[in-house]
Design a protein around this nucleic acid. Structure first.
Lengths: 341, 341
DNA sequence: TTAATAATTGACAGCGCTGTCATTTTTTTA
DNA sequence: TAAAAAAATGACAGCGCTGTCAATTATTAA
């Protein structure tokens, strides 16, 4: 059956406590002893019992992934990355979906953390962007790592893994500019989301870099939904509009872009001949629209694994763990963009 | 801080063991005592420590959700349903993604179950449809509940929650027939998946019920992918084809349908005027295609919660738990179907 | 070389709960 | 009514591990 720490101790000819020291990577174990123990561990393919550890120690070996994100693909990817880090370090993962809009989220999550003796938390947008929420968690006896949009962490509350949407958005906009577009519209996601803000900044920066005059009427407020894309594009492209009609549309995510595509179809505007449209996120369905969407992809799996590792090293109080990784999403050019007519 | 069983015992004026009996719903506790204890439990909002339980008892309070399904929305829904049942019954959920195509899945999962002292497993397609895989798990000391396509469980290996794709597919096909279609094609998913088989049976049954002659050349083999839909529809609708060209296409899922939509666009066939197309699954993007897809929706959340409850009652060896719930997906009519021209 | 110091190692209690079995209380039977 | 049977309760060990602190061994200084 399953080996216990006792079996390992006997086999290695040392005390239980010494085995415990080795598996916990504590100092003050002679190398010789350490090797002996490690050998026994390997031979018995021993794995510490998480329940016993959690029960006995002051430490906890559980981390939780708290999420509220409408995008299932994102969550699944994150989850997989986190799980993989957990497996590597002998941690356990608790999954906790919640509703960011609920005014009691904070209380609810705090309770859950207290109840479950959790060592650390991973937060993704939009939860990671809610300062009060984050603060109430940081004040507990848990480590927190946030995944966020931006170049620099917004505060010192916790280490963060940053996704540089700004640079990606700039590159994306530049792609449009390189195709000869000058009248490039911006279909925003939820205004309070950092991803929207960052993508907007990147968009502006690209225009500026190419000396293209910014036209405020080409920026349409909205949210991260298909309908928002439909309405935004209608707005921009309808016959009655008094604005300059854009020749390209930057959408804050793929859903918005899909909405814009839908609207274009409605108005008999052919894509990409009469209008270029780009998305952001590389959701699976960005390959299943007509035409397939040019979009930006981020390695969510990797990001999540890094975040989890960062969290675990925080928990173990290892060296200098406030490393803030930065990822820049990569542009994927497909069929929804073309040279300006 | 957090209340322990000891606190409850003191407050209720009974022994620890009696509290344990109450919270485990054991018999042979007088109603009066039970009430006293329950009161103390409520007052202290006591929740048993899972680690201690797992460690002390022979029983385990962990169940695992093993999945391998490309559809993230499906997994997230399932997960949420399971989580909700777990919370209600004080169980813990382990998440374990795996790769059904890997020849060592079975070994890998078996190991994981042994390692983690898991009381039960929830399996969804395609894992739930792999007899050898299921068998190797059932032989361990764990309860298993499967979620499957069909009317009746394929075997006695474990209790199952059945999703009646057949009836749903029949209704869906009938919808097409009601619109005057007679030449209805069938774009299959992976041939070995029960969902494909069941949906096919429903399709055939609907044709038969309306005395429509079955035309084998309208059935196209494929898999559950966008590309499969593209190719299938091209095949069916191209100019050179020698077959009857269908006036409607039944696709085994929304991705295939989206592919068919894509192909139709390529071939300048207008939907739904010249061709009706239906999907299956009600994935979010079925609302984001042009035109929006008529599809079939199933209450995954509820299915998952039921499956988890069934599993937990199995674990507790309660009464007669081999209840096999049956769900019939519901047709959602949108814009991709129209009366036959 | 020996005493003093530092580095390793181990003995033991106890985390919060459940299982076993003994004890007490209640109910039934004669 | 007492004795026997059944039901309810409790005492206690122990699940596998970690924390504390004492004991042992190795290393350094004198």
């Amino acid at each position: 059956m399953k080996a216990t720490i006792n079996d390992v101790a006997k086999r290695a000819g040392v005390s239980i406590k010494t085995v415990s020291r080795v598996i916990n990577n504590e100092t003050s174990v002679r190398q010789l002893t350490r090797d002996k123990v490690q050998l026994a561990v390997d031979e018995l393919s021993y794995q510490p019992n998480l329940s016993a550890r959690n029960l006995a120690g002051a430490k906890s070996y559980s981390i939780a992934y708290i999420y509220d994100n409408p995008n299932a693909y994102y969550i699944i990817d994150m989850q997989k990355g986190i799980l993989s880090a957990c497996k590597q370090h002998g941690f356990e993962l608790l999954i906790h979906p919640c509703d960011a809009k609920d005014k009691d989220v904070s209380k609810e999550v705090v309770n859950m953390v207290k109840q479950a003796r959790i060592a650390g938390l991973i937060l993704t947008p939009p939860l990671s962007e809610m300062p009060d929420f984050v603060k109430s968690l940081v004040e507990l006896d848990v480590k927190v790592v946030r995944i966020l949009s931006g170049n620099v962490a917004p505060d010192e509350l916790s280490p963060c893994v940053m996704v540089n949407d700004r640079d990606a958005a700039q590159t994306m906009t530049q792609h449009l500019i390189d195709l000869g577009h000058k009248d490039i519209a911006f279909l925003a996601g939820d205004a309070e989301h950092m991803s929207t803000i960052e993508r907007y900044k990147g968009y502006r920066r690209a225009l500026k870099a190419s000396n293209i005059e910014f036209n405020k009427s080409l920026v349409i407020e909205g949210d991260y939904s298909f309908d928002s894309g439909v309405n935004g594009a209608k707005n921009l492209m309808s016959e009655q509009t008094t604005n300059t009609r854009p020749t390209a549309i930057f959408s804050c995510n793929d859903e918005i872009a899909a909405g814009a595509l839908f609207a274009a179809r409605l108005m008999n505007i052919s894509i990409p001949e009469q209008l270029s449209i780009v998305g952001f996120e590389n959701s699976p369905f960005s390959r299943q629209t007509w035409p397939k969407l040019t979009t930006a992809d981020q390695p969510n799996n990797q990001i999540a694994e890094d975040a989890a590792k960062l969290l675990i090293s925080q928990i173990r109080k290892q060296k200098n763990p406030i490393t803030i990784s930065q990822y820049v999403p990569k542009i994927i050019v497909r069929d929804s963009t073309a040279r300006c007519f």
